[in-house]
């Protein structure tokens, strides 16, 4: 059962979660299915490409971020899905053996008039490399169940 609810997300809070070392094999496996451009599949092609080396698909980065969000806090949270992503920026390529952590900032929090059992929390999620480079930045809204459904907040 979830033990983190809508009320637990405090605007302005910044926390860092988890880590994931990206393997060459997973870059190739993901790209083969979802982004089969040679720059994501082959070392020489990656080196000759704009990326400067075989790098993960940006969509793979989104999937890795989602997993870090799940393992970091969402699987313990009364999550109800997401209506969407406000923006997602790919800022730096992710290469084999890069270690990524997820940094979460709570940007906004509001209750829902039409659905008193939930609220909407807007997060900025970033994938951060050990040298502090931000490889990807995403602003995403997640619907989260309320501990006290329908309670009036000032």
């Amino acid at each position: 059962m979830p033990d983190i609810f809508f009320e637990d997300f405090i605007i302005g809070e910044v926390k860092t979660f988890g880590s994931h070392q990206v393997s060459r094999e997973e870059i190739i496996a993901f790209a083969g299915e979802f982004d089969p451009q040679p720059m994501h599949l082959d070392e020489a092609a990656g080196k000759a490409s704009l990326l400067g080396g075989m790098a993960a698909s940006g969509w793979h980065s989104c999937a890795i971020l989602m997993r870090l969000i799940c393992d970091g806090f969402l699987l313990r949270t009364a999550g109800m899905g997401s209506p969407g992503v406000t923006e997602n920026k790919w800022l730096a390529p992710i290469f084999p053996d890069d270690v990524l952590t997820m940094r979460r900032t709570v940007l906004e929090s509001r209750t829902s008039k039409s659905k008193p059992e939930m609220g909407l929390v807007t997060f900025r999620f970033e994938l951060v490399k050990p040298d502090k480079t931000v490889a990807m930045s995403q602003v995403c809204v997640i619907m989260i169940g309320r501990r006290n459904p329908g309670a009036r907040l000032a």
């Binding site: 092609a45 000759a48 490409s49 704009l50 990326l51 940006g58 406000t86 997602n88």
Partner: peptide, 22 residues
């Protein structure tokens, strides 16, 4: 084989906006 259209036929992304799962 080293032509950009072969290495990266749809190129590189800068970002996405207003993604919705309605």
């Amino acid at each position: 084989p080293d032509h950009p259209a072969v290495l990266s036929p749809v190129g590189v992304g800068f970002g996405l906006e207003v993604l919705k799962w309605p």
